[in-house]
């Protein structure tokens, strides 16, 4: 469980160039371990989707990666930096090692091609030696896996419901048996029943196939239920990272506390719902110091001056969690914590 599969090191992503640039992701360090579900939460504009697209270099212009490394650890080979791959090698890496289930299933499928064609495309690109017959069999198998009958193979996307389309996308993501699956708000467009059904199915598939998941959503309640660890993003930075249960029980960063306070508890005693005052920061004019300080109920002097370090706090379970808050000064900065890992 502790073996890393994807390590993000000081990833920086800008939109635009020069003075006009907006820093959407700043010095993000995050490690995905083999077999785990890592949740990534934050308000819209916190940089969580940018982070996911940035690490596979899928950001549309004017997105630019201005620094960082994304180290991928294949199962039986030496680790390598995804950001340093050539275009051709990156194409080979994509989907075979890291697949993505995108936000909004409506537009993820090409409207003019059959489902079978779009599934086949992946196999044709990555396994050119595969025969047409076995490609077809594989596509059917994948659809069956996500609960879609094989006779929908020749359907066009507009003939499927939103839930079915998202299942097709999940099936497509798993077709090459990748190590990592990134899910970007995979169920936001669906109704609540469908959401849980699909996520439940996904967790089951993960147990069977053993891939790791980065699960991005603004809905912290889903993460608490479905993920092993949770990272909270704010203003392009990770502000807290902890095991899901620990975060739920005892969030250290005031922003995490605010997020947790803004939806009803699933179990346990009732608590008062409270939103977070104010709105997410304008990325163009980020506050100095800790970017949350203008909204923070507990901000004090240094918050507006110094950017807090993401590191292990001095708490009893501090060894497995990190936080970037002056209320909980880092005992060991996160970046320094694991020098032996590479």
């Amino acid at each position: 469980m502790n073996e890393p599969v994807l390590e993000i090191r000081n990833l920086n992503v800008d939109y635009g160039l020069g003075d006009q640039a907006v820093h959407a992701v700043r010095d993000v360090n995050l490690t995905l371990h083999r077999g785990e579900v890592l949740g990534l939460a934050g308000e819209s504009g916190s940089g969580k989707s940018t982070l996911a697209y940035g690490l596979t270099r899928l950001l549309a212009p004017p997105g630019v990666i201005t620094g960082g490394e994304v180290i991928y650890h294949p199962e039986k080979a030496d680790p390598y930096d995804v950001l340093a791959l050539s275009d051709n090698n990156l194409r080979k890496f994509r989907w075979a090692e890291t697949a993505i289930v995108f936000q909004g299933a409506m537009n993820s499928l090409n409207p003019v091609h059959k489902i079978s064609t779009q599934l086949n495309d992946v196999l044709q690109a990555h396994e050119p030696k595969m025969s047409a017959h076995s490609r077809n069999a594989r596509c059917r198998e994948m659809l069956k896996l996500v609960g879609i009958s094989a006779d929908r193979m020749d359907a066009y996307p507009h003939q499927l419901s939103g839930g079915m389309r998202q299942r097709v996308m999940i099936g497509m993501a798993l077709i090459l048996q990748p190590q990592v699956v990134i899910m970007d708000e995979p169920t936001t467009a669906l109704d609540v029943v469908m959401q849980r059904q699909i996520l439940g199915q996904l967790i089951e598939l993960r147990e069977r196939l053993g891939f790791s998941v980065i699960f991005i959503t603004h809905d912290l309640s889903l993460l608490v239920e479905f993920s092993n660890r949770i990272a909270i993003m704010y203003g392009g930075r990770i502000v807290e990272e902890a095991p899901a249960a620990a975060l739920y029980r005892d969030s250290l960063h005031p922003y995490s506390a605010g997020l947790l306070g803004s939806f009803p508890a699933l179990r346990g005693p009732r608590r008062e719902l409270s939103g977070i005052p104010g709105s997410p920061p304008d990325l163009k004019g980020m506050p100095s110091g800790c970017s949350f300080h203008p909204r923070c109920p507990k901000a004090f002097d240094p918050c507006s001056e110094h950017i807090p370090v993401l590191g292990r706090p001095d708490t009893t379970d501090g060894s497995t969690r990190t936080v970037a808050c002056h209320l909980h000064p880092a005992q060991v900065p996160a970046g320094v914590s694991s020098p032996g890992e590479r």
Binding site: L90, I100, N107, S108, N110
Partner: peptide, 15 residues
């Protein structure tokens, strides 16, 4: 080119 399915196509590693 800004549609989601183009990004998906790139993500799939298609030529």
């Amino acid at each position: 080119a800004a549609e989601d399915y183009i990004t998906v196509a790139h993500a799939k590693g298609l030529p």
